[in-house]
Simulated assay, not measured.
Amino acid sequence: MNKFPMTVAGAEKLREELDDLKKVQRPRIVQAIAEAREHGDLKENAEYHAAREQQGFCEGRIQEIEGKLSNAQIIDVTTIPEGEKVIFGSTVMIINVDTDEEVTYKIVGDDEADVKNNMISVSSPIARALIGKSIGDEVAVTTPGGEVAYEIDDVKYV
Rank of each mutant, 00 (worst) to 15 (best):
Y150V: 04
I74A: 03
K133L: 09
T78L: 05
Y157D: 02
R37M: 11
E138A: 10
D153F: 10
H49Q: 15
I95W: 01
D110N: 00
R37E: 14
A129M: 08
Q63I: 09
E112G: 00
I87V: 14
V148A: 07
M6R: 02
R28Y: 11
P27G: 06
I95F: 01
K106S: 12
E35W: 06
S134E: 13
G10S: 07
I107L: 04
N96V: 05
A11M: 01
V108R: 00
A34N: 14
V86P: 06
A32L: 12
F57M: 07
V115S: 07
R26P: 02
E16Y: 06
I94T: 10
N118I: 02
E16M: 11
V24N: 14
V158E: 13
K3Y: 14
E84P: 03
D20P: 01
V148H: 02
I152C: 05
K85W: 03
I107N: 00
G83M: 11
G60V: 08
A36W: 04
C58S: 14
D111S: 01
E16Q: 12
G146S: 03
K133P: 05
Y48S: 03
K43I: 12
G109D: 00
V158L: 12
P144G: 06
Q73P: 03
V86A: 13
E66L: 14
T91G: 06
T99R: 08
H49D: 04
G56H: 10
K13F: 08
E82P: 15
A34L: 12
I94P: 03
G136N: 09
K106D: 02
P125F: 02
A32W: 02
K156R: 13
D76I: 08
A34P: 04
G83S: 15
I80H: 06
I95H: 03
I94W: 02
F57K: 12
K68F: 07
Y105L: 09
Q25Y: 13
I62E: 08
V77N: 03
G132R: 07
V139C: 08
I74Y: 01
A140K: 14
R28C: 05
K43E: 13
T143F: 06
V139I: 15
F88N: 08
P144C: 08
N96D: 15
V103W: 07
D98T: 11
N117A: 04
Q25V: 14
S90G: 14
N117W: 03
D154C: 09
K133H: 15
G83W: 12
V97F: 03
P27I: 08
Y48E: 03
L18R: 06
N118K: 09
L69G: 03
E66Q: 11
G60P: 05
E17Y: 02
N71W: 03
Y105F: 14
